[in-house]
Amino acid sequence: MGRRSSPEVNAGSMADIAFLLLIFFLVTTTFEQDNGVTRKLPRWEENPEKNEVVIKKKNIFTVVVNKNNQLLVEDNLMDIKDLRAAAIKFIDNGGGKSADGKVCDYCKGERSPESSDHPSKAIIALKNERETSYETYLKIQDELGAAYIFLRDREAERLYGQGNTYSKMNAIFRDPQVKDEVLKGKIKVRLDKLKGMYPQIISEAESKNK
């Protein structure tokens, strides 16, 4: 139609192409970041009976979830919202000595001889049935994990000052955007110490077959 005054290369369709690509990437983009409750599974043993270790009953905190998603803690029916407090009480009891004969001097529990000896000996045994719903199970895992984090947070603030909680330090340590390796190394030492004070020992037995 109109006569061009200058023989420029027509770049008009470039925008269209770029738009096409843009829309493609817009559609396929997911911004979601996966968050998860991390746990470590026990090693697989062919015959678990062979090397069974005898553990004192007072050092085991049994949590059983049945197929109706009811919670049985140490043979008593319990509501999920009370689980965290019960777990904290059990872990933090410090009634006796650890495996290498140390008294738990940072525990603030009741030091009852009927409950756990030392946080390093306190085992939470979680049992579920095959019909238990995953939602309930994860809620319980969450509450138990929260009990450990509560205790680690408390000790972190005591040792490293107000605001330096375990959860905050852990978040920094795990953030891939934080590139400061020196800081991360420093935090790792602290985290390991706290984990050593309150090691997370949750044993997940296989669910019973009905």
Partner: peptide, 13 residues
């Protein structure tokens, strides 16, 4: 997905 409080970020790298 169920919900949980004590979640940690997963490193996709």
């Amino acid at each position: 997905l169920p919900s949980a409080e004590t979640v940690e970020k997963l490193d996709r790298k």
